[in-house]
C-alpha cells in the first residue's frame, strides 16, 4: 500500500466522519430550535394563565362600583372565555390580544373614577397585571426571535436539506393586534381661561 493510497483513505475516512458529524450537528440544532419554540410558547402560556387567573378579581373589584361601565367588563369576560376555549398559538394569541385591549380599556376608564383608582385592591391588581403584561411583552419578543431563528435556519443551506427530510415547515409568530399597533389618542381637556 503506497503513501498516496493511505492519504486517500485518510481523506475518505475523515470526509465521511465530517459529513456524518455535520449532519448530526445540523439535525440536533434543528431539533433544539423546534423545542426552543415549544418551550418559549410554554413560557408565554404560563404568564397568560397567571393573567387569566387575575381577571375575575379585577372584574369583582370594578363591579363593586355600581356606576362603572358594564360594557367594558363584558368585553373582558368574553375575551377571557375566548382565551379559555382557544387552542393553538394563533387562536390563543388572538384571544390574548383581545384580553390586553379590554384591560387597557378598563385601566383607561378607571382614570374617571377616583375612588376606584384609589382602591387598594384595584391598585395591587393593576400593578400585578401591568407586571404580567410587561413580562408577556418580553416573552412574546423572545418567542418571535425563536420562531424567526427557526424560520431562517430551515431555509438556509445546508439546513434546508435536513429540514426537508424532517418535513419542517414555517412556524407562526405571535402577532400584535391592530389595536396595540394603533396610535394612542390622548384627549387633553384644556381649561378655558377668562
Amino acid at each position: 500500500m503506497g503513501t498516496g493510497i493511505l492519504i486517500f483513505l485518510g481523506i475518505v475516512l475523515f470526509g465521511a466522519l465530517a459529513i456524518i458529524g455535520y449532519f448530526i450537528t445540523i439535525y440536533n440544532g434543528l431539533i433544539s430550535l423546534k423545542e426552543n419554540i415549544k418551550k418559549s410558547w410554554s413560557n408565554i402560556d404560563v404568564i397568560l394563565k397567571q393573567r387569566h387567573d387575575e381577571l375575575p378579581k379585577l372584574i369583582s373589584v370594578c363591579e363593586s362600583y355600581s356606576e362603572f361601565e358594564k360594557g367594558i367588563l363584558d368585553q373582558l369576560m368574553k375575551a377571557r372565555e375566548k382565551y379559555f376555549k382557544a387552542s393553538g398559538v394563533t387562536k390563543k394569541s388572538e384571544a390574548s390580544n383581545e384580553v390586553t385591549a379590554a384591560l387597557q380599556g378598563i385601566f383607561a376608564l378607571a382614570e374617571n373614577y377616583p375612588d376606584l383608582k384609589a382602591n387598594k385592591n384595584f391598585m395591587q391588581l393593576q400593578e400585578r397585571i401591568s407586571h404580567l403584561e410587561e413580562t408577556l411583552a418580553d416573552r412574546r419578543e423572545f418567542y418571535n426571535d425563536s420562531v424567526n431563528n427557526y424560520n431562517i435556519r430551515i431555509k438556509q443551506i445546508p439546513d434546508v436539506l435536513v429540514a426537508g427530510m424532517l418535513n419542517y415547515q414555517d412556524e407562526e409568530m405571535f402577532k400584535v393586534s391592530q389595536k396595540e399597533r394603533a396610535d394612542v389618542k390622548i384627549n387633553i381637556k384644556i381649561p378655558k381661561f377668562g
Binding site: 458529524g21 455535520y22 450537528t25 440536533n28 440544532g29 433544539s32 430550535l33 426552543n36 418551550k39 418559549s40 413560557n43 410587561e134 413580562t135 418580553d138 416573552r139 423572545f142 426571535d145 425563536s146 431563528n149 435556519r153
Partner: peptide, 25 residues
C-alpha cells in the same frame, strides 16, 4: 465539532431580559 455545536447553541437561543427571563432553562 464541539465548538460548532456551541456556536449553533449561541445562535439558536435569543437574548432575554434579566427581569423577565424564564428560569430553569
Amino acid at each position: 465539532f464541539r465548538e460548532l455545536k456551541s456556536k449553533r447553541i449561541i445562535q439558536n437561543i435569543p437574548t432575554s431580559k434579566i427581569n423577565t427571563g424564564a428560569v430553569g432553562t
